[in-house]
């Protein structure tokens, strides 16, 4: 899936994970995998660029970016809102 590939690409470039992103499944905790508060902000901004979306105010929190699955749901929701 192109969405997942893009998410993984963004994570590998911005999340500063201590493990290889390819080893993480949908539900793996990205913060436990090394992503910090500051790097999660960079992930958020890079996702906005990559998908040409702007996350809504209520999405700007840790839970939105805690796993690949959570990120996909947030991206798809913003894409659906257009």
């Amino acid at each position: 899936m192109i969405v997942d590939e893009t998410i993984r690409q963004v994570l590998s470039e911005h999340a500063r994970l201590v493990v290889d992103v390819s080893t993480l499944d949908d539900r793996a905790d990205l913060f436990a995998a090394g992503m910090t508060s500051h790097s999660s902000v960079n992930v958020m901004l890079a996702l906005e660029d990559a998908f040409d979306i702007e996350f809504s105010e209520e999405m700007l929190k840790k839970a939105t970016f805690e796993s690949i699955g959570a990120i996909r749901r947030a991206v798809q929701e913003m894409q659906a809102r257009g």
Binding site: M44, L60, K62
Partner: peptide, 14 residues
């Protein structure tokens, strides 16, 4: 800014 709202939410969360 917007990144700041996220940092603030994270800071509270933690």
């Amino acid at each position: 800014g917007r990144p700041g709202r996220m940092l603030a939410a994270n800071q509270r969360d933690e």
